[in-house]
Nucleic acid binder design. Structure first.
Lengths: 146, 146
DNA sequence: TCCAAAAAGGATATTGACATCTTTTTTGGA
DNA sequence: TCCAAAAAAGATGTCAATATCCTTTTTGGA
């Protein structure tokens, strides 16, 4: 709900690389797509976006693949949202009214403001590293089983 | 974000009827669509759904239109969501993982659970009447200006 | 220098939400 | 009884997100 499938693919993809990229091992697109049961070519575009945004690295050619870089673990979830969905989401009126604001609030304005600020705060502070550090029994399984 | 345009149309439509239906005056589809700047035929289907769900009434023929009934003001927002988007929204994993639950939580499970429960609670308790009763400078304007 | 493997890029389907148009049913009044 | 107006119903069109397929670029190693 409220976030696109693309966002889910991006997060699961980057987390998978983070889990597998140990001692310089590069992770191939095919492996990620297969293990996460995600459409390969669609995932390719999303991975590419993350590379372009600098929160992930890639190497072309044989023995190539995706790997972490110095920005990956500190990347905020809001950055992924920005890449896949656009952050305007957090600021658009739930009734699609462009003129909705505190001066001219829609009937749901304040209720939504509260909820949305909570989300925005959560997504602005949580990093990829934070998610990896939370103890989950079987992390790799949790992002793989659809 | 996270709610469809249909939900917005439904809510604004039912609120408009509630504001205009005084002393048995019926509100015509054309008037609602025009005043709210909403696509007429699309709105027609959504209004019909609300009638079928029993939270709004309608009368066919000349001098017909939409009007409130005994359920309108006590209808919960969650009911509108159910009609337009489906309530599964509130229970589906943000990463689209069907097997995500407390036994096998996705990396965002608990963060989202908290946020989602807040929303669900809000939408489960707030009624159409509640929205009408909150003091807004110019209510009709707030649902009309897009 | 050439080949194969991998990411990157681009072109084309598919699908569901959103929107529009047309026809049918209902009904109050002339 | 007939007509016009309104909701209801059904058919079709549009568009963006999602998905798939094909081509290009890059690069390590034989």
């Amino acid at each position: 709900m409220f976030l696109s499938k693309s966002f889910g693919y991006a997060l699961r993809g980057i987390l998978y690389v983070a889990l597998k990229d140990t001692e310089g091992r590069k992770v191939k697109l095919g492996e990620i797509a297969e293990k996460l049961s995600v459409p390969r070519h669609f995932l390719a575009k999303i991975m590419k976006l993350m590379v372009q945004e600098g929160i992930l690295s890639s190497i072309k050619g044989p023995y190539g693949g995706f790997l972490l870089n110095e920005n990956t673990l500190t990347a905020k979830l809001i950055h992924l949202v920005k890449i896949t969905d656009g952050v305007e989401q957090f600021n658009t009126c739930v009734l699609s009214l462009r003129k909705c604001n505190s001066k001219n609030p829609c009937p749901l304005h304040y209720q939504m403001l509260k909820l949305r600020d909570g989300m925005l705060a959560e997504f602005s502070k949580t990093t990829i590293g934070d998610l990896l550090n939370q103890e989950t029994p079987d992390f790799i399984k949790s992002i793989s089983v659809i």
